[in-house]
Amino acid sequence: MTSNLRFVFYPGCLVLQRMPQYELATKRLLAALGIGLQDMPQASCCGAPVVESFSDEWVYLAAYNLALAERLGLDVLTVCGSCTNSLKRARLALRDPEVREDVNRRLAALGLSVEGRAEVKHLLQVLMEHRAALKESVTAPLRLKVALTYPCQVFRPGDVAAFDDPLQPQSMHELVALTGAEIVETGVEHECCGSTLYTSNQPLALSAGRRKLEASRGADVLVDSCGNCHWLLERMQRAIWAGEPHKRLPVLFMPQLLGLALGLAPDELGVNSRVVALLGRDAHD
């Protein structure tokens, strides 16, 4: 397995603390595809927007994580939008010799240095590069109706992301199409989920979430690819649908959906019981 070790897994704060299911499903799916992955010991926050909102020192945090990956000789695999954007921006900033020198002065205190060699890729980008293998591995085609929500910062700004289309990305559609599931177009799949508004203005964030979930009502399940999207659209549904619990919609992370299509067991993917019940219903149709 070590021969195809290519990535170091960067969970980011939110997934590390609250979404072990996303990490688990990502690891099980990539293992099934033969894509080697290891943990990043001593990883930290990616720096943006949490630190960037207060200080230019955010770039030291991002560069620190890039330095850890570089020391291991591996590329970085991310699973959230903002971590992807932050680490990719820092990598581009490191092309400037002055920035690099400044960053390395700071990292030297930790016995590290960075050049910006390690590439940064979101899970969607890696999966798109392996879609032929993914297609061949589908052994349990899904009979589900799936709505999608795209993580903004995996695709924008286009010159930083350098992946898919910055305004109308299609990668999630293409990946779900491999599973046999039916895609329900919501018209808002490319709109921002609004999750990060929650810490500034809760009602605004909840109405953003409601809008997206309302539009997804024709689907059995909504699929996302970012801890922030998932936090609002799955974890906050109780607040979004206060008094209307019948409107609650199951939400899966992309690697959970793909893992199911590969025949992996739901509990190996951290898939919740509501979705398992849906799959059971389908199997007996």
Binding site: S82, Q153, P157, G158, P166, T196, L197, L204
Partner: peptide
């Protein structure tokens, strides 16, 4: 308020 930005980067695009 700049704090009401979701960082979706659509404006910039």
């Amino acid at each position: 308020s700049a704090w009401l930005c979701c960082c979706c980067q659509l404006c910039q695009e």
